[in-house]
């Protein structure tokens, strides 16, 4: 390539970078520091590290303001920090990205309108709030609270306590939890792989697929108005199950027991026990169908 052409190509590539500003904030922090990130950004990535400090690296469009509420560089390790990102006036949809490094035991609170949120390795608490976009969590946080409207939610790991609420966003969970609750209006819920002790799923129209394992003395409750409930049991499942529909059907491919007509001849009901019946499963649907099968 000719030198002039090379310069032109370099200038062309550099133009978008000139419209960006990189901001870095680094502060000493306690291992359980509480960090809030709120405002106008399109992507936030939170990564746990083994250092006792918090680092925020933001690439933000020119005109965007980052307001950090953090202690001074020579102050003792902070117990709490806040970062507020204010987009440029009349700037339209947020485009900036934020990368946050926190001690693993930190508690992180984030909020955005439309963004991709990604969290890796945090063992403290997570409180993630979003309108649209996506939330991807990998790791084993002690507390995980996610609220989303349209945004999809994907969790891979084993939160000790988990609550996920969406309006139309799909929820995918691969992992385990002793105490989990998922609420969605129209999003599809898919749960696989792990073991659950207490799990409650509520949906209005969203389909629910459960292909995980219920722990000993576990309790699974699924309520749906019109979404299909698909329960895929493993070969060693040991549980007592009650399934009820008001107007839907129940298909049992687990054993030979057939559902009976529901109250007043509408809908269907099925009760069955597998193994020694350690766990308890309750499935209720108004007009969605319920399917039981073996994995």
């Amino acid at each position: 390539m000719r030198p002039l052409m090379q310069v032109l190509v370099m200038l062309f590539c550099a133009t978008p970078l000139l419209a960006q500003q990189r901001i870095e904030v680094r502060r000493a922090a306690t291992r359980d520091v509480y960090v809030r990130v709120n405002g106008a950004y399109a992507r936030v990535k939170v990564t746990a590290w083994s250092r006792d400090s918090v680092a925020l690296v933001a690439d933000l469009p020119t005109g965007t303001r980052l307001e950090p509420a953090v202690p001074g560089p020579k102050d003792p390790p902070a117990k709490g920090m806040k970062f507020y990102i204010e987009g440029p006036e009349g700037g339209g949809a947020a485009t900036g990205s934020v990368e946050l490094f926190v001690p693993a035991g930190a508690t992180v609170w984030t909020k955005a309108a439309n963004a991709r949120m990604e969290v890796n390795g945090v063992t403290g608490g997570l409180d993630l709030n979003l309108v649209g976009g996506s939330i991807v969590v990998t790791g084993n946080p002690s507390n995980l609270n996610i609220e989303s409207m349209d945004g999809t939610v994907s969790v891979t790991g084993s939160p000790q306590w988990m609550r996920v609420k969406t309006a139309s966003g799909d929820v995918t969970l691969r992992g385990s939890s002793p105490d989990a609750g998922i609420t969605t209006v129209g999003g599809a819920v898919s749960i696989a792989d792990g073991t659950f002790e207490r799990l409650r799923i509520e949906s209005i129209t969203g389909a629910v697929t459960f292909a995980a394992h219920m722990g000993r003395a576990g309790n699974l409750v699924v309520d749906s108005h019109s979404g299909t409930i698909d329960l895929q049991l493993d070969q060693k499942a040991s549980l007592d199950l009650d399934a009820t529909t008001i107007a839907g059907t129940i298909l049992n491919n687990v054993n030979a027991r057939r559902p009976t007509p529901g109250r007043e001849g509408r809908g269907e009901e099925l009760s069955l026990g597998l193994g020694i019946g350690d766990a308890r499963v309750t499935l209720r649907s108004f007009k969605g169908n319920i399917r039981l099968s073996r994995r």
Binding site: A167, H225, I246, F286
Partner: peptide, 27 residues
């Protein structure tokens, strides 16, 4: 866009409430 999402979700829930209430009145 958020208002639209909330409106749609509320309409879906209200429809479900209406159907469940009517069924509960019968049974």
């Amino acid at each position: 866009a958020t208002v639209a999402t909330v409106e749609q979700a509320l309409a879906t829930i209200d429809e479900a409430i209406g159907e469940a209430r009517a069924a509960l009145a019968r049974d």
